[in-house]
């Protein structure tokens, strides 16, 4: 029978199916780190369900030796909600992409987040449609030339984290496909959070949008291009001599040059706090985009709020307490009845 969770390894979460992503795809690293973190989190394979929609990222469940459901385009959040509502003991993970999650599935993503269903959502953002061979996506930059936009995209892109925060997400984080340790840290935090955990993973598509995240993936560049968020620590980043801090004034972030060795306390640099009740602070962080700002990575927001599945269970228990377990005969005989002899 099942091996005790403590003795499980990555292999116990790896299915026998051949992984079929393109060579060099960022998805490999995400898969490997999910498979690695599962035993570390004490998960049992039978308690885990991976749910996906359609797209390159959505092949993910086939490669996990857990329960898995590869559903239809954009609707994975709705399937996941049904699974979690049906059995709250399951650990439910939604795998989606920028097209699946934010184009065709934008509505469902909005609603699973606002309901705060206790699931973990991994949105692989490569800013392009891969499986349909290279069209622009809702996160593609303005001007991006693709097969469907030969003159350049004229759609204003959406930032996945701003979207999630707009729906009052209780846990929001960003990580990057090449940084194994950081990814696992964020996955762990997501699993520990009760409620919807929304994670944007910057992911490279070597075939249709190569090097989109180069400055965040490259070890040298990312020191200046990124900003590692740490709860209780000031928002400071940059290599020696190019240190910069973030000041947030009336909800608007500004880059403050600390290269001359200025004292961060006198420069009024913001101190990261994951637990702000208002999402406004995290929204300010999410508005920080390249190239004007270093791109924040880490946990933007983690606040406690009742979950949909938790409240659903509670309502059921209350209904049982209030009215006693339902009796079918009594139900069919409620109200006016009459007997013919």
């Amino acid at each position: 029978m099942a091996t005790p969770a403590a003795q499980l390894t990555r292999k116990d979460f790896t299915s026998n199916q051949t992984v079929r992503w393109c060579p060099g795809c960022g998805d490999y690293s995400i898969l490997a780190n999910i498979q690695r973190i599962m035993p570390e989190l004490g998960m049992s394979p039978e308690k885990v369900v991976f749910v996906s929609g359609i797209g390159c990222s959505s092949r993910f469940p086939y490669y996990m030796d857990t329960y898995g459901f590869h559903t239809i385009h954009g609707r994975a959040p709705a399937f996941a909600t049904g699974i979690k509502a049906s059995n709250p003991d399951l650990s439910v993970w939604v795998v989606t992409g920028d097209g699946d999650g934010l184009a065709i599935g934008g509505n469902h993503l909005l609603h699973i987040i606002r309901r705060n269903v206790d699931v973990n959502i991994l949105l692989f953002n490569n800013r392009v449609y891969g499986l349909t061979k290279g069209q622009y996506s809702p996160t593609s930059r303005i001007g991006m030339k693709t097969k469907s936009t030969p003159l350049g995209s004229i759609d204003h892109p959406i930032d996945p984290l701003s979207f999630a925060l707009g729906a009052a997400a209780t846990f929001v984080a960003r990580t990057v496909d090449v940084d194994a340790e950081h990814m696992r840290y964020v996955f762990r935090r997501a699993q520990e959070h009760r409620g919807t955990s929304f994670i944007e993973i910057l992911q490279n598509c070597p075939v249709f949008n190569d090097e989109e995240w180069d400055e965040l993936e490259d070890k040298k560049q990312r020191i200046d291009a990124g900003l590692r968020l740490q709860h209780g620590q000031p928002l400071v980043t940059g290599s020696e001599g190019r240190r910069r801090g973030i000041r947030i004034d009336s909800g608007v972030p500004a880059v403050i040059d600390l290269g001359d060795g200025s004292d961060i306390s006198t420069a009024d640099i913001a101190v990261h706090n994951e637990h702000h009740h208002s999402p406004a602070y995290a929204f300010a962080l999410a508005s920080m985009a390249r190239p004007n700002f270093p791109l924040p990575l880490g946990v933007f927001r983690a606040v406690e709020s009742p979950t949909y599945d938790g409240m659903l269970e509670q309502q059921m228990e209350q209904a049982m307490e209030l009215r006693g377990a339902g009796n079918l005969r009594n139900l069919l005989h409620t109200g006016e009845t009459w007997t013919v002899k």
């Binding site: 749910v51 609707r75 709705a78």
Partner: peptide
């Protein structure tokens, strides 16, 4: 949130 989600959630529940 819509008809699609209603059906999808039901199918998810059936799976579960």
């Amino acid at each position: 949130e819509d008809e699609i989600a209603a059906c999808s959630a039901a199918i998810g529940a059936a799976f579960a």
